Amino acid sequence: VFVDDHLLEKVLELNAKGEKRLIKTWSRRSTIVPEMVGHTIAVYNGKQHVPVYITENMVGHKLGEFAP
């Protein structure tokens, strides 16, 4: 499973602090992992960042699938 390192670091850091804030990313190719559930990730679609709230059903899919 591929997840960009910088994105995973941000998610794990927020989980350690117990925070839930918006994470901006250009990494549409990253796979959604269970650690991301409950976070809102702003995924770049080529024009703007689209906020995507991550749920359990999204695990295993790519971030780009949810930012048309």
Results as ranks from 00 to 15, higher is better:
residue 1 V to T: 10
residue 1 V to R: 06
residue 2 F to S: 05
residue 3 V to R: 01
residue 3 V to W: 05
residue 4 D to G: 02
residue 4 D to K: 01
residue 5 D to W: 15
residue 5 D to C: 15
residue 6 H to E: 15
residue 6 H to C: 15
residue 7 L to S: 01
residue 8 L to P: 01
residue 8 L to A: 03
residue 8 L to E: 02
residue 9 E to A: 15
residue 9 E to H: 13
residue 10 K to Q: 15
residue 11 V to C: 05
residue 11 V to W: 01
residue 11 V to K: 01
residue 11 V to P: 00
residue 13 E to Y: 08
residue 13 E to I: 07
residue 14 L to Y: 07
residue 15 N to R: 03
residue 17 K to Q: 08
residue 19 E to M: 10
residue 19 E to S: 07
residue 20 K to M: 07
residue 21 R to F: 10
residue 22 L to P: 11
residue 22 L to E: 08
residue 23 I to L: 09
residue 24 K to R: 13
residue 25 T to S: 05
residue 25 T to M: 01
residue 25 T to F: 02
residue 25 T to R: 02
residue 26 W to K: 11
residue 27 S to M: 06
residue 27 S to I: 07
residue 30 S to A: 03
residue 30 S to W: 02
residue 31 T to R: 08
residue 31 T to N: 12
residue 32 I to C: 09
residue 33 V to H: 05
residue 33 V to W: 03
residue 33 V to F: 05
residue 33 V to C: 10
residue 33 V to R: 04
residue 34 P to I: 14
residue 34 P to V: 14
residue 34 P to H: 11
residue 35 E to L: 14
residue 35 E to A: 14
residue 36 M to E: 00
residue 36 M to H: 02
residue 36 M to W: 01
residue 36 M to P: 00
residue 36 M to V: 01
residue 37 V to A: 09
residue 37 V to M: 14
residue 38 G to I: 00
residue 38 G to D: 13
residue 38 G to T: 08
residue 39 H to D: 00
residue 39 H to T: 01
residue 39 H to K: 02
residue 39 H to F: 09
residue 39 H to E: 00
residue 40 T to K: 07
residue 40 T to M: 10
residue 40 T to Y: 07
residue 41 I to Y: 01
residue 41 I to S: 00
residue 42 A to C: 05
residue 43 V to H: 00
residue 43 V to F: 02
residue 44 Y to V: 03
residue 44 Y to S: 04
residue 44 Y to D: 03
residue 45 N to I: 06
residue 45 N to P: 02
residue 46 G to L: 11
residue 46 G to F: 11
residue 47 K to R: 12
residue 47 K to P: 05
residue 48 Q to C: 15
residue 48 Q to H: 12
residue 48 Q to T: 14
residue 48 Q to P: 02
residue 49 H to E: 04
residue 50 V to T: 10
residue 50 V to Q: 11
residue 50 V to A: 09
residue 51 P to T: 11
residue 53 Y to E: 11
residue 53 Y to C: 12
residue 53 Y to M: 11
residue 54 I to V: 11
residue 54 I to E: 00
residue 55 T to M: 14
residue 55 T to H: 14
residue 55 T to F: 11
residue 58 M to C: 07
residue 58 M to R: 10
residue 58 M to L: 12
residue 59 V to Y: 11
residue 60 G to F: 15
residue 60 G to D: 09
residue 60 G to P: 02
residue 61 H to A: 11
residue 61 H to R: 14
residue 61 H to D: 08
residue 62 K to F: 09
residue 63 L to D: 00
residue 63 L to W: 00
residue 64 G to A: 10
residue 64 G to I: 06
residue 65 E to H: 13
residue 65 E to Q: 13
residue 65 E to R: 14
residue 66 F to I: 06
residue 67 A to Q: 05
residue 68 P to L: 10
residue 68 P to R: 11
residue 68 P to N: 07
residue 68 P to Q: 08
